[in-house]
Design a protein around this nucleic acid. Sequence first.
DNA 1: AGGATACGTGACCGTTTGGTCACATGTCAA
DNA 2: TTGACATGTGACCAAACGGTCACGTATCCT
Lengths: 106, 106
Amino acid sequence: MTDDDLVFKALADPTRRFLLDLLFQRDGRTLTELESELEMTRFGVMKHLRVLEDAGLVIARRSGREKLHFLNPIPIQLLHDRWIGKYRERYASALANLKNELEDMA
Amino acid sequence: MTDDDLVFKALADPTRRFLLDLLFQRDGRTLTELESELEMTRFGVMKHLRVLEDAGLVIARRSGREKLHFLNPIPIQLLHDRWIGKYRERYASALANLKNELEDMA
DNA sequence: AGGATACGTGACCGTTTGGTCACATGTCAA
DNA sequence: TTGACATGTGACCAAACGGTCACGTATCCT
């Protein structure tokens, strides 16, 4: 499985995107803290965090008996650079074409 | 299921991303034409195209006995605007912070 | 020391997903 | 009009996924 695929798959679940949002608001939270924001058992949240870690979207650091979770925006940046960007360019050129057609009609 | 979720889920499969790439190269292809590029039966490809259509990433038009498929970059643009963009900003500011720290060390 | 706290593992289970197939419908062209 | 072609439907199956639970380990605090 390629890196991009891990990231795309990780982003495919709404609970995981919500976790990213939580960490976006405030970093360095523990598992129990994140769990308290979700209607789900600790184990479910743990599994999701695992997927996010494997994709590199979350980086965790042990501190005593706690595990602190941090957001890593770099995979999303890379995804954008080598995949999403080109489709946005097409969107832009599509808009430009439409603009030209409208002007030709006038 | 929200629109964003449909798009994320559609993008989560490598075969579907490959189909988008094919349509990005050249639009308006028929199902059989797309099938010939994949190691998969026609039915598998049909299912994937269905998912892409439901997410709005592909728009199809019937022409006689053929069905022509077109790429629609707008959902990706929207996804970027209201989701991916903010994580890229954090990436940018993280880079800026790193730069500052390096300069302070000098 | 010992109880409370925070996290981890493996098994388990229902649902979704990716893929195939038999069969059916609509369309073109001689 | 008949045969070849292009797409569609529903059933089916194995694998992956989302989620829970019983149990276990490490750490803190008094």
